[in-house]
């Protein structure tokens, strides 16, 4: 009796061990990814947050200096330039992309022959790197060889278009290139929204005598509210993150005329050796993005649950 018991006990434990392993396997499989996200995303955010309260210069350093970096940051004229540029750039980028995207989507939705050809043409810039976009527009807008020279060669000798070299206007060239890159994508979002609208509603409104303009103004555009919201969130977060395009197009210049928070953060941290201030500017960028993204994701998740998901 005692012999059989000693024989069965180990078998039972191995079975439960294996079962237990099976039960834990899914979590074990997920663990490396989750650990990586915890460390490299949330851990790093905390680390940068901490650095923003230290007097780190060329290397991280752990002398606590309180809010000094934030005070210096908001006393720096460059940071205010970056913020006001972001307001100009972000505002125009979001508004123009939305108008162009919505307009193109509505036009494309009129049973257009050749839609299959036009749609990919509107969208392809989204596949390109911002560095490529920046290079193309940098020389196309360059007064020495680009638009200005071309129009002059058509006989308009006094035509001037030097925005990219002009301190006051350079930020608008960033808008031109960024709208070129992203508006087709916004068009795709609105087109998907338009195709989801039930035609019966539109037909009913038409029977009631609504004009085309009223139809869109009163019925279609209100129904596109979710697409407007998604477009806004995507564009706002792209605007705040904008870095590559400015680097390639103007490299923040002329002077500091096209400085944005992302270029500010990079130059303060890696070339000016003001890591503490760089970290505090990164924290501000995170706060800006979070204030756009978190409510959106929260609403999406909540909305999904109430729909019985």
């Amino acid at each position: 009796m005692s012999i059989t018991q000693t024989e069965t006990v180990p078998i039972v434990t191995t079975a439960t061990a294996r079962e237990r392993l099976q039960g834990w396997l899914p979590r074990l499989v997920l663990a490396p990814s989750f650990a990586a996200v915890l460390l490299f995303v949330y851990g790093f955010i905390l680390f940068t947050f901490y650095l923003s309260f230290t007097n780190s210069k060329i290397l991280p350093n752990f002398t606590f200096v309180g809010l000094q970096n934030y005070e210096k940051l908001f006393a720096a004229p460059n940071w205010w330039t970056a913020l006001s540029n972001l307001a100009i750039f972000g505002g125009l980028y979001i508004v123009i992309c939305t108008i162009v995207g919505l307009g193109l989507a509505i036009l494309l939705d009129q049973k257009i022959r050749g839609e299959g050809l036009l749609r990919p043409i509107y969208l392809y810039p989204m596949a390109l790197s911002f560095i490529v976009t920046g290079t193309a527009w940098k020389w196309f807008l360059d007064p020495g060889i680009g638009v200005e020279t071309i129009v002059r060669s058509w006989g308009f000798e006094t035509f001037t278009f030097d925005w990219i070299k002009n301190n006051d206007m350079a930020i608008y060239t960033v808008v031109i290139a960024a709208v070129w890159q992203s508006s087709g994508f916004v068009m795709a979002m609105f087109l998907a929204g338009l195709r989801g609208i039930d035609n019966e509603i539109l037909k009913a409104a038409q029977i009631d005598g609504a004009s085309n303009f009223q139809l869109y103004r009163r019925i279609v555009i209100p129904l596109l509210k979710p697409a407007f919201l998604s477009a806004f969130v995507v564009l706002a977060h792209l605007a705040i993150k904008s870095y590559d395009l400015v680097v390639a197009l103007t490299n923040g210049g002329p002077g500091r005329a096209t400085e944005l928070p992302a270029t500010f953060m990079y130059s303060y941290t890696f070339t000016r050796n003001q890591m503490g201030i760089g970290a505090s500017s990164a924290v501000i960028m995170l706060v800006m993005i979070a204030s756009v993204i978190v409510p959106y994701i929260y609403a999406e998740v909540k909305g999904g649950q109430s729909n019985g998901r």
Binding site: F44, I45, T48, L286, I289
Partner: peptide
């Protein structure tokens, strides 16, 4: 919660991780 945390990670401005990385 795990998924939510991974989802939020998609949207962070990468400037916030450059120094520690």
């Amino acid at each position: 919660i795990v998924f939510g945390m991974m989802l939020l990670a998609c949207f962070i401005p990468f400037q916030i991780v450059l120094i520690p990385m």
